[in-house]
Nucleic acid binder design. Structure first.
Lengths: 230, 230
DNA sequence: GTCTATATGGTGATAGAC
DNA sequence: GTCTATCACCATATAGAC
């Protein structure tokens, strides 16, 4: 299942365009496992690891409960597989926007828009990640302190380059990335509730557009140089 | 229990300085219920509504499980009470910073610092709120579409006044508040995991200080007028 | 008011027929 | 590979002794 960990650099709107080979085994096995993983993503994201039940996942996948245990021995195994297959690839998906040859203006705008698109189209994967973080990231501990940490370190260097070129104000990279990450995360996880506060039924494409623009406006002005407050 | 819904305008670091009368009944009942509610806050915030067990809450509260059911008839009742007692008051706690007579610079700085302090000192209440939002806010539906919506409407008017006075750039109030809210929320809910990414054991006071400063820097420059990007 | 003991139903996991 | 029937266990909730 380690192939699911590799960086998926193309932007995709759902999992159907992931390469077939990420799931091992024959065709019938692939169909069943994918069905199960998609169901698991939905149920785990809504109820958390403890709160989710194998019965609910089986019902969602329209398969007998025993089949789930045939493909994934334990609930724990299924959860890990769901994180790896549905979440981790998605996590680093918007990252190709940060390269030294880009202008920070384009990089941040592009990143924010890409992440918000993901938020809109893969709300379950996003919520699942948040659930895992809320519980203290027991399964992602290693991933956070290695791969994700490396990502942040890379950003730091790119930001420094931009700052030296005079393209960007001096900012703490880790906290800035955390800001961007948490806001886009929030739009995915609690967009419906935000709509409630706004007095709407649900978030429209237009709201995501407004969100992206407001966010980019705030971040950009705050991050680009030559803007002195007060 | 409706008295717990009222606005608590003073900043407090934990629940011990809430007025005694928010919990009805005699002294022994007060002691037990508070013990239970604090335990419930901790367990529900970690495991969610479905994931939490009455056994775990009882163990945390150091009381027999039957006593919990004596004071709060069902798990559902306990959850509602926990939200109302531990969360809703805390939610509107940092709001007194937004008044027309303040300069937006002071208002935003004050709000961010106050909210981050809460995040630091009441991580469980914060996480519990996030858990509830993740599950679609089934218990807070009414609160979101009435009281919280009114809060956002009030902010909108204050921001407009500031904009007219030339103290603030024109910004979408709802999305700006959502930004502020979600970031501070994220520091409370996933601060430990952020620390992991930063390569530390836990978030120190110094990190919260850096967070507050970075955040205020970004937001302020983006929100105050006369700052033209690029 | 407090707690022990228990009723009733749902849980993850498996054995074994097909 | 698939699914029915069933296991041992843990959940919420309550009855009734103190």
């Amino acid at each position: 299942m380690s192939s699911a960990l590799q960086d998926v650099s193309e932007v995709h709107q759902n999992h159907s365009d992931l390469p077939e080979k990420v799931l091992p085994g024959g065709i019938p096995r692939q169909i069943s496992t994918r069905q199960i993983l998609n169901a698991a993503e939905k149920i785990f994201s809504r109820d958390g690891f403890k709160g989710a039940s194998m019965t609910a996942i089986a019902k969602e996948a329209k398969l007998p409960k025993a089949n789930i245990h045939y493909y994934f021995k334990t609930k724990e195994d299924l959860f890990r597989a769901t994180l790896e297959y549905n979440v981790i690839a998605w996590l680093s998906d918007a990252d190709h926007w940060f390269t030294t040859d880009r202008h920070p203006r384009d990089a941040f705008t592009g990143y924010i828009r890409a992440k918000l698109r993901h938020a809109h189209h893969n709300p379950d994967a996003s919520r699942l990640f948040t659930q895992e973080m809320l519980q203290g990231a027991p399964h992602l501990h290693h991933y956070l302190s290695t791969e994700l940490r490396r990502h942040v370190e890379d950003r730091k260097i790119i930001f420094q380059t931009w700052t030296e070129k005079g393209l960007m104000a001096e900012t703490d990279a880790a906290h800035l990335m955390f800001c961007l990450w948490s806001i886009t995360q929030a739009y995915a996880d609690t967009g419906l509730q935000l709509a409630l506060v706004l007095g709407q039924e649900k978030l429209t494409e237009h709201d995501f557009e407004t969100a992206a623009r407001t966010l980019a406006d705030i971040i950009l002005v705050g991050v680009l140089p030559n803007a002195i407050p007060q």
